[in-house]
């Protein structure tokens, strides 16, 4: 048994990995063989074979834990005593959490709007130019980098050295400030502006996604529409405003809402760059801190439920907009 739980050499780990994959293959293969007898098998047996393992995992790993978390959010820090809405009251009234909520609102409003705007403008500008694919690849690349990696990259951009003779700035942004004769700043420490410097990192990561989806939408605008507008003598800016943007409205809504949801759950960037200190924490980071650092399970659960509740209006908006655009067609 120990062999399956504690792998501490490279060979052992790889052996365990191969074992896990083989075990999975054998179990699934067995199930499929069992439902594929030459004799007529009732449909429900076949369905159970195809769907059963998945549904079991979803119930055990998503549905049950989610319900359990909702329950836990009404209990105290050890999950022993029922305390009603006290955890939620704490989240909405205590000063520290006010900052967390304010920051979360800033993230969820600014990141989607700026990301979508940048992605749209960039996709439009490089569309059908000679270096389109290179230009897109450059902006797209941060999507492959982990948020932790991005956090490290940008912490280095923001790196601060005291403003003394003989000390050189090694962070790009402070070097730029010094060149212009401005005093170097502690970008990640000085609140409240530090939240904005973290938001920049998220925009940097997500812009590639916005650009890709919007670029595909721009290319899907029928040629005759564009041609007709050109015959009417429409200028570049007017074309963008009156033809491109209205034609890709559904894609814009998808990008805005998708980025908003990802941003709502942002954790890695805050964790890596400031650890949630200096008044930069957001709900998802505070959830981790409360649940797994402070071991206040009740409060952690309440924050997780809050995330869940905040996602719902964004999804509802998305579904509504999609319905509307389908009706128009």
């Amino acid at each position: 048994m120990q062999w399956f739980l504690e792998a501490n050499s490279v060979g052992h780990k790889i052996a365990l990995m191969v074992f896990a994959i083989l075990l999975f293959a054998v179990v699934m293969g067995g199930i499929l063989l069992a439902v594929d007898r030459p004799k007529r098998v009732p449909t429900w047996v076949v369905v159970a074979g195809f769907l059963g393992p998945t549904l079991a995992l979803l119930l055990l790993g998503l549905v049950y834990p989610a319900l359990e978390t909702v329950r836990g959010s009404f209990y105290d820090r050890r999950g022993e005593e029922f305390i009603g809405f006290d955890n939620y009251v704490t989240v909405f009234t205590e000063d520290g959490f006010q900052t967390v909520l304010r920051n979360t609102v800033l993230w969820v409003v600014l990141v989607p709007v700026i990301t979508t705007a940048l992605g749209l403008v960039y996709a439009y500008l490089v569309d059908r130019t000679r270096f389109e694919s290179l230009a897109k690849a450059l902006v797209f690349l941060p999507m492959a980098i982990s948020m932790v990696g991005a956090g490290v990259i940008w912490r280095f951009v923001y790196e601060f050295r005291p403003d003394q003779p003989g000390v050189n700035q090694i962070g790009l942004l402070n070097q730029a400030l010094v060149l212009f004769g401005i005093e170097p700043q502690q970008f990640l420490i000085d609140a409240p502006s530090n939240t904005f410097y973290l938001i920049v990192v998220m925009i940097w990561i997500q812009a590639g996604f916005a650009m890709t989806v919007l670029s595909a939408a721009i290319k899907a605008i029928p040629d005759d529409v564009v041609e007709a507008a050109r015959l009417d003598g429409v200028s570049g800016v007017q074309m963008f405003r009156y033809v491109t943007v209205p034609s890709i409205r559904p894609a814009l809504v998808v990008v805005l809402t998708t980025v908003a949801i990802v941003t709502l759950k942002v954790f890695d960037i805050v964790r890596t760059m400031t650890g949630g200190n200096f008044a930069t924490s957001v709900v998802a980071n505070e959830f981790y801190t409360q649940a797994f650092r402070q071991f206040n399970f009740g409060l952690g659960a309440a924050l997780a439920v809050l995330l869940f509740i905040l996602v719902i209006p964004i999804i509802a908006y998305n579904v509504r907009q999609l319905r509307l655009s389908e009706e128009i067609r």
Partner: peptide, 12 residues
Amino acid sequence: LQVVPIQVTLIP
């Protein structure tokens, strides 16, 4: 179920 944030599941 796509809507469920994974944070909701972690403690249980």
